Computed example of a mutant assay.
Amino acid sequence: MRKIEISTSVTVYTDVSELSSEDKMLMDKAVEARKKAYAPYSKFKVGAALLLENNQIVLGNNQENAAYPSGMCAERVAIWKAGSEFPGVKILKLVISASSSITKVERPVGPCGACRQSLSEYEIKQKQPFEVLFMGELGEIVKTASLLSLLPFSFDSSYL
């Protein structure tokens, strides 16, 4: 038997005023996308902004459906839109913002498990990590250097 210790490192910013100008601009874009989300059932809106290596910014937001679980998360909307519109263009950053019309979301909201799996495919495929920044509606922002740091022991095509 052997024991493996897994650790990850993140940077936590107190609020958006501490972000670089690029990261703040991307967070503003994620907030814009979040405000356009279709979330009549959960009342929980999420927006995502992807910065690509060609300087394009691709937005996504969650899209709910009365026939759960037919909706789609903001991160997957954005990543699949990027893959469709800009195939082969590397992702540099993913920025996420979440809010609720029921309560204030004051803690950082990271990607769900399904999104982490889907996003990891792109990071592995491009053979280059991309930064992930996420926040709630206000308050702290978490920044990681890689999506895979959020998903240790990821499942990928090497298992197939």
Rank of each mutant, 00 (worst) to 15 (best):
K43I: 04
M135Q: 08
E32I: 05
P129L: 05
M27H: 06
P69H: 02
N55P: 00
A67M: 10
K29A: 15
V132Y: 02
W80K: 12
K45Q: 11
L94H: 01
P108D: 10
L59M: 11
I91S: 02
P69C: 08
N54A: 06
G136F: 01
A67V: 11
S42K: 11
E106V: 13
N61Q: 12
K125E: 13
V31F: 09
A74Q: 00
V89N: 02
N55R: 06
L50R: 12
E106K: 10
Y122M: 14
I57K: 10
K81L: 12
I102E: 15
L133K: 00
R76P: 00
S118L: 15
A39P: 04
L50Y: 09
V95L: 00
K36C: 13
L133D: 01
E106G: 05
V46Q: 11
M27S: 08
E85K: 14
K35P: 03
V31R: 14
S97P: 02
I57C: 06
L94K: 03
Y41G: 10
N54G: 07
G71Y: 02
C115P: 09
N65E: 10
L92W: 04
G83H: 07
A74G: 10
G83K: 11
N62D: 14
V77I: 15
L59K: 09
S101F: 01
E64N: 06
M135G: 09
I79D: 00
A82M: 01
F130I: 08
G136I: 03
P108T: 08
P129D: 11
I96C: 05
A30L: 04
N55L: 10
V95N: 01
E53W: 08
N54V: 09
A49Y: 00
Q117M: 13
I102N: 13
Q128V: 00
R34Q: 15
K127L: 12
M135F: 00
A78C: 11
R76W: 01
Q128R: 11
S99R: 01
E131F: 05
